[in-house]
Amino acid sequence: MTEPHTGAHEDEYRIARLRERLAGDDVAELGIQVEQRGGAVLLTGTVPTVGHRDEILLLARGELGGLTVRVDLEVACADAPDRWEELS
């Protein structure tokens, strides 16, 4: 019987599971990108609040334990614009 493979492909499934959990009922964040880069897992995207970013980070570290997690999650800017676009 062939022994099950472990290794890099297992990380890929863990990342897929994290994406599913991010899209699940609790977090409901579909706009977060999760990708392997340079031996680490990179999370990118924009979230409404700092609290949401912390929530995602906690979930990622739990799901990806043992892997290096790098986070480039921005908090959405809630400022009014200082310019408009003229459509003529």
Partner: peptide, 24 residues
């Protein structure tokens, strides 16, 4: 027809502003 994606992460502000002219 001009199309604008106003998803907040794209526009990077609370809202985008467009001035339209009825004689366009």
């Amino acid at each position: 027809v001009r199309v604008r994606n106003v998803a907040q992460p794209v526009i990077g502000k609370a809202y985008a502003l467009y001035h339209l002219h009825p004689d366009g």
